[in-house]
Design a protein around this nucleic acid. Sequence first.
RNA 1: GCCGGGGUGGCGGAAUCGGAAGACGCGCUAGCUUCAGGAGCUAGUGGGCUGAAAGCCUGUGAGGGUUCAAAUCCCUCCCCCGGCACCA
Length: 941
Amino acid sequence: MVDRYDFKRIEKKWRNFWEERGFFKADIEDVEHKLYYLNMFPYPSGEMHVGHGRNYIIGDCLTRFYLMNGYNVLNPMGWDAFGLPAENAAIKHKAHPKKWTYDAIARYKEQFRDMGVQFDWDREVTTCEPEYYKWTQWLFLKLYEKGLAYRAAALVNWCPSCATSLANEQVVGGACERCGTPVTKRNLTQWFFKITAYAERLLRDLESLKEWPERVKLMQRNWIGKSEGAEVEFKLADREGSLKVFTTRPDTLWGATFMAIAPEHPLVEQILKEERDERLQEFVERVIRVSEIERGAAEAEKEGYLTGWWAINPVNGERIPIYVANYVLLGYGTGAIMAVPAHDERDYQFALKYGLPVIPVIKRPDGLAKSFVLPGSVRKGFAEALRKAGIEFTTRPDREGGEALYVTLKGEAQIDRYIELVKAYLLPGNWNEVVGARFAFIFPEGVMELDSVAADREILARCKELEPRVRDKRTVMEILWEVEFYRDLLFHAEYGEMINSGELSGTPGEAAIKRTIAWLEGHGCGKAAVNYRLRDWLISRQRYWGAPIPIIYCEKCGIVPVPEEDLPVLLPDVEVVTKEGLAGIPEFVQTTCPKCRGPAQRETDTMDTFVDSSWYYLRYISPHDQEKPFDSRLVNKWLPVDQYVGGVEHAILHLMYSRFITKALKDMGYLDFDEPFARLFTQGMVCLGGQAMSKSKGNIVSISEVVEGYGADTQRVYTLFMGPPEKDIEWSPTDISGSSRFLKRVWQLVNDHLEEVRGAPGTIDPARLEGSDRELWRELNRVIKAATEDIRSFHFNTAVSALMELVNGLYDYIAEAGAGAGRINIPLLKRALEDLVLLLSPFAPFICEELWERLGHREAVLENRWPSYDERALAVEEREIVVQVNGKVRGRLTIPVELAQDQEELKRRALELGPIKRQLDDHRLEKVIVVPGKLINLVVK
RNA sequence: GCCGGGGUGGCGGAAUCGGAAGACGCGCUAGCUUCAGGAGCUAGUGGGCUGAAAGCCUGUGAGGGUUCAAAUCCCUCCCCCGGCACCA
């Protein structure tokens, strides 16, 4: 009688075993077989749920697997312990965030132990400990020394709810990443890290990260947002000064007919001061007040205000007006743009709205043009002439009984021919125009091209003379826009041959940008430029619970960094934390200047917690070193991290910051590698009820409830079995019973045969196995191979299913043998059961340790080598060959392997099959396709 | 709008070097067991036709194509998820 699978008793028995035996302590000096496995460390808060568990279960499974494969695995754990939730909770409960944080840490540790998730706790790192944040401050000082940390006044993101400024990366869709409150802007003097100095390397080195998910690299690429183009200087008209713009399309410069600047642009201030234009003031204030979210919406109506100031287009000397416009962003490029309405959609909309000239300067690559011919504007016979010339057109009768012509033209030659015909047929008092590949107006006295702002004025004036109905139009484009038929050809944003561009006219599209930049450089009004979307990292936080920025302000000496030997700048020990943070603690603020010993004040901002986590992976190597932040010698041996695993929500924030800090430390000579994480795996979230588990949504499945109800082993197996680990997945309270049942079956299976197996010899001679023994042997080897490869490649779900197949196979084998089909081969069974336990142990360590002991072993599972398989055992004697007729399966052949490669033999046997014969009646065999060892396809007619 | 990822039974998912679609598990159906447990065992389970079986038809978001053969390759479209989004 086998005792029932009592997971509670078993898990309790083994819970502390691995830690006591020290299996998870890495030998830091042995780098030969080193493997640095790292899970992103958690922000300790409340209880862990099964979604958090996924991350650590993957890590523990892999660690156990690699330990059994002979690796010296370092898998450390620590706490990202500074942060707002702790502080907010502390303010609310009038307590200290420390207590809240350490309580959570204690609970997390307990839950890790409950899950059997093991770490080397000697290497535990806690970012809110002075022994840690001392070195975060050291990092700040080093960056400051190198000019990579600087203080500047800037318009920064501000979260009113968290009462602190935020980095760009922490603003998601215009709202605070932490609390979801819409972010506002404030002009503040803050500390920044100069991540933009590394923009190019952060972008370029993504190429070298071969083992990172493509989507993460893509997100970073987008975030860095590199664009190449030119910087062009526009002199102000009638006064000193100039406006610089960045453009990716310098080839369209000749078409710049106005400029637009962001409402926050410094020039706006100057204009306001000189012009005292109250309506401009109102406009600017109104636009700035509108939140980023609304302004950011692409559908938002483009609005502008004419400042009355003018600039000179440097390429053609054209005077163009300067607008303040809501669609120009201060944070990108120079905060000012040259507007080319003919080739930029936003500029086009704006030009139509405000009646600004639109001058095409890039030829349409498709060569299409159109013309609309009003009835009565040409002599009779025009349509006939077009027909003869092979020009396409359609007609539509108008109210007065005339016929309007809708002409579509393709190519230069046809357009020229058409213009000649119009000239010949045009009646006095009329005009006609061609738009698209050419913008030409044919008047009785001659043809005018829309090739400059001056031409726009002349053509407009002439049209007004001829047609009273267009007298209210402000530009030629407004007239054309009225004709529905033209609309799709009035604007394009493609690359193409330059036209109407002075001496550069005729430059082909491929050379246009390059040649224009050369031209600009030659004329001293511009140069090639690269622009990045990435902004410097704002690290100041007006909060208490973070690492104080080690800076002192002295009236005499100015900004003075705290000397290294004075670190850490300790967080003042207060009983209760308030909203004022450090600024509200005078004992902290008042200090003496390290240089002149005079009275001075401390910086009261703390650092963004992402600074803490940007270097923690270095600290694990020497976590308690009092002398230095990390041991360069060992760090250079152990890093980059071999395998990093965490949530995709850190794709930009944490991963980008860490890459930046690593590069900066490398440049300072502390590290000899460029990238901190060689391989990255981003695991998916666990959902319930279609939504990510979260306390606020109340859809949490807690680890303790699952461990209590099913046991940690079941939780682990189910977590790894439920789907591919990179995918988001739904936690199913019913599906978990499958994993529970599986472990029960394993329990039963092993316990049923303890007696026979325990004393039996372990050696088997595979060559002498026959029948079902041989099949079992093959199955065992197949499963070892599959599970091993699957674990290595993060396919835990299929690894588990392979083990389930092995268990099913073992039950079948025993049932068959027991029914008299043969005798159970005890050494074989022993081998299979033992290998099963070893293979299952990374997934379900508790039950495996217990079974291993029951199987008579005195050493721990982890002291054994991972089972190996024999390639020869996978060979089969017979193959099943699929027989298809016209690609459809009609039968099967079981054939000895030697013959399975023999095309003629396969064909002969296939044709003998009954169902195949039937299929072939009344048909002629056309062709036979043989895939040796697999399939034969008979093609018949 | 742009860029990624994806769409396979009632459900989670296998199979992607083009070669048996649906491994494994959940659920469901029938039967057996009764140590009544949060049980276990056996058989079946994509849909349809046929009394059952054999057999046939059909089937991987939709449509088309390439091929002896397509979940897998190509084209068009639809839907879902994620990222970026007036980026000049």
